[in-house]
């Protein structure tokens, strides 16, 4: 199947979510509101630095490298998404300029932002799977569970990451850092792994692609 490239994603990280990413969620943290204010002030600047892009391709099981994690799947979607490199460059720059906290906030925002992009791309692919009459699995990334980090090479063999500005280093790390690669298996039968769906877990309540509550 053909390669699909998308660049229309909605990224909107709330200060509360960043408080969680920064590890400051605990109730007795006295400066929570102060930090939220700092975050709020930076958000418009941060958003200018985010350039979300995604790429995916749906392949038949026969086109895979027969890794056991593809077993029983009829088709497999492989995907890469990113928010580009501008934000992480600015974050590093801020840290070099002795603005450590601001730099950390920029980085944390980027981490949440790319998660949101992955969440939306996941929804688009899962919807397509359903339209094709399949049952999509949740998304899984190399380096987690039984899918080794080295399998990044397979994703990048199937997908031209450079089309969205993402390259794979020899250490299997993606550049820009704020990028996520994943797979979704398409099955003939419903899959149930006993966990909440990613949409239900996703904090982005107003996401246009949100499917479940």
């Amino acid at each position: 199947m053909e390669i699909v490239i998308l660049d229309e994603f909605m990224v909107d990280v709330a200060p509360d979510d960043l408080i969680r990413v920064l590890g400051l969620k605990r109730k007795d943290y006295p400066k929570k509101e102060e930090i939220k204010e700092i975050i709020q002030k930076e958000i418009s600047e941060i958003k200018k630095l985010i350039e979300p892009k995604g790429i995916y391709r749906i392949i038949d099981y026969e086109e895979t490298n027969r890794h056991p994690i593809f077993e029983n799947a009829k088709k497999i979607a492989l995907a890469i998404c990113t928010i580009g490199s501008k934000l992480e460059k600015r974050s590093s720059e801020l840290m070099r300029e002795n603005q450590m906290l601001k730099g950390l906030i920029y980085d944390a925002y980027g981490s949440e932002a790319v998660e949101q992009v992955a969440c939306q791309l996941d929804s688009i692919i899962s919807e397509q799977a359903r339209k094709m009459g399949f049952y999509p699995s949740k998304r899984f990334s190399p380096g987690y569970g039984k899918w080794e980090i080295e399998e990044q090479a397979f994703i990048f063999k199937i997908l031209p990451g450079e089309e969205i500005g993402v390259k794979l280093r020899s250490s299997f790390m993606m550049e820009p850092r704020k990028s996520i690669s994943f797979r979704i298996n398409f099955y003939n039968e419903p899959v149930n792994n006993g966990k909440k769906s990613l949409c239900a877990q996703c904090k982005m309540k107003n996401c246009p692609f949100r499917k479940e509550e």
């Binding site: 920064l22 590890g23 400051l24 400066k31 930090i35 002795n98 450590m100 906290l101 950390l104």
Partner: peptide
């Protein structure tokens, strides 16, 4: 103190030292 306080204090220290 948490990470934000550590970082802000480290920034102050660096500024004074510079």
């Amino acid at each position: 103190y948490f990470l934000p306080e550590l970082l802000t204090s480290a920034e102050c220290m660096k500024s004074a030292m510079s």
